[in-house]
Amino acid sequence: MTTELEDLLRTGMQRHGGDRSVPPRLLRDAARHNRRRRTGAAALVATGVVATGAAVGVSAFNGPAAHRASTATPTHSSPHSTSPRILTAAYVASRAETAIDASNAVLYTRSTHGNGVTWKMWTDRRTGDNLGVSYDKAGNPLTATLVPGKGGRVTVVDYQTTSWWTYVPVTDPQHAPRLDPKAKRVNLDAFDTPAQIKEALADGDLTLVGQQRLSGRNTVHVTHTFDKGGLRLAMDMWIDATSYLPVRTAYQSPQLAKGQRSVSDLTWLPRTETNLAKLSLRIPTGFRHLSGPPKENLSGGVG
């Protein structure tokens, strides 16, 4: 029965889909739209420069306090700005994905969560090596985790128990180790890694909010909305208008109390020896070496 159905479907498709020549205008139009996108990016950068000039002018007029305000927090550009009209969210997403892929930088990410925990992460974009250190409200380190990009043993330092250990992570994501339960990082679902950001960008459900000033630079603000656990959630992202690398994400996780957000600032550092050295993890003198992860601290992985 299925075979007959398959045959009918096959021949039906041939009747409907066959003998369709591609209009020559298709490639022409695609190339023209592609060029228009590039022009749009150039226009955005150009108008961004104008906006910068305008912001500086206002700051100078209103004094230092106004200048601090204009650089410390995102400020919406004029609604009459011309650049958002020629930009699309899809274009910004595509440029950002390309920029992330092409980046060889040492990525420094500082994330703050509503529970008071701060994370500092350094990632070598070339090798994938990653060092993450969590801090409590007072700024004391809680844990540090060094994950080699090419696999191998993960090193964890627990500053509270003054101990350290290594383990081989399991590859099955269902049984992946949950590190640092004190920091509750895994459940927070912050958007602070290039992979997470790229996934959000590729998801397609993006809205272009507009051009904004953020910490003295011109950025494009986009919002990614998605469904999770029956909730409609949103993640805001600010993308540098020149390099198209994301510089900030802000996310209201359902794990956090109302009004609290996970905010991650991303700095794409040049790949210098000094910056690469930030990825080294030094075990403090006197820390106990455990043969494997303590059961209460880690599930999954092989010690």
């Binding site: 498709m13 409907h16 889909g17 066959g18 003998d19 369709r20 020549s21 591609v22 298709l26 490639l27």
Partner: peptide
């Protein structure tokens, strides 16, 4: 352009379906 000339009808047929 060459690709569209040779395989364009198959690809467009797929897109239509």
């Amino acid at each position: 352009e060459e690709l569209l000339a040779t395989r364009g009808s198959v690809l467009l047929g797929a897109a239509v379906l």
